[in-house]
């Protein structure tokens, strides 16, 4: 086994910049997310994430301390401001990532991956989703896989994050022909086929925001 490459560290400020970029993305694509949600859900995904991420950015204005402190604050804010299914799911993602990140003030590539993976495991525990259920898992799981693979092949976190963003986008697109098995879209049965999953679409924005932030 060769050793992993020396990776650039991701600071807490960088994590804040990531969240800020995600906030901007949900503002920019809010109508699109809501439109996807009208097709197979209840037409509120964009508005809910905008409300949640605005609350997050207001909450993290003061110095957030460690990466764990920051991510915990993000998780609690999302849980208490978003509602619906996306509140507990996104909230649990950040709360579990916070526990994994702990007291660290900088995260190297493997530490960032470990935090993101813990977050994804939290989503699975909360939402009981599996691959192919047409949920945010279908964008996030391939993203984690691509991130890990890129790190293992010696890539820096920014390159790994870009690979993850590409995988998340592909994962999002792959939800289109899927039959929804979780959440409100599942009530549509066959009629859920042919639409992108809104949660997978917002998850792809989250990973893309990470890649954009680490590249800048």
């Amino acid at each position: 086994m060769g050793s992993l490459s020396v990776v650039e560290a991701v600071t807490v400020d960088r994590l804040v910049a990531w969240l800020s970029a995600f906030r901007d993305a949900v503002h920019e694509h809010g109508d699109y997310l809501t439109e996807l949600d009208s097709a197979i859900g209840d037409a509120d995904h964009g508005a809910n994430l905008i409300r949640g991420m605005d609350a997050v950015m207001a909450a993290v204005e003061q110095s957030p301390g460690s990466a764990g402190d920051l991510l915990k604050k993000v998780g609690m804010t999302l849980v208490t401001s978003v509602g619906g299914a996306s509140g507990p799911l996104y909230g649990t993602f950040f709360l579990r990532a916070a526990t994994a990140a702990g007291d660290a003030t900088v995260l190297d590539g493997p530490a960032l991956l470990a935090a993101l993976r813990a977050g994804l495991e939290g989503i699975v525990a909360r939402g009981k989703a599996e691959a192919g259920d047409k949920t945010m898992y279908d964008a996030l799981a391939p993203a984690m896989g691509a991130f890990e693979e890129a790190l293992a092949s010696g890539a820096e976190p920014d390159v790994a994050a870009r690979a993850a963003a590409d995988a998340a986008a592909a994962g999002r697109d792959a939800t289109e022909p899927m039959l929804a098995l979780k959440g409100r879209a599942s009530y549509l049965g066959e009629r859920s086929v042919g639409h992108l999953d809104p949660g997978a679409a917002s998850s792809a924005l989250l990973v893309a925001a990470l890649a954009d932030t680490l590249e800048s």
Binding site: D44, V82, G83, A85
Partner: peptide, 11 residues
């Protein structure tokens, strides 16, 4: 009371 058609939150 949650937002329109959106579950309220745990707090």
């Amino acid at each position: 009371c949650g937002e329109v058609f959106t579950s309220p939150t745990p707090d």
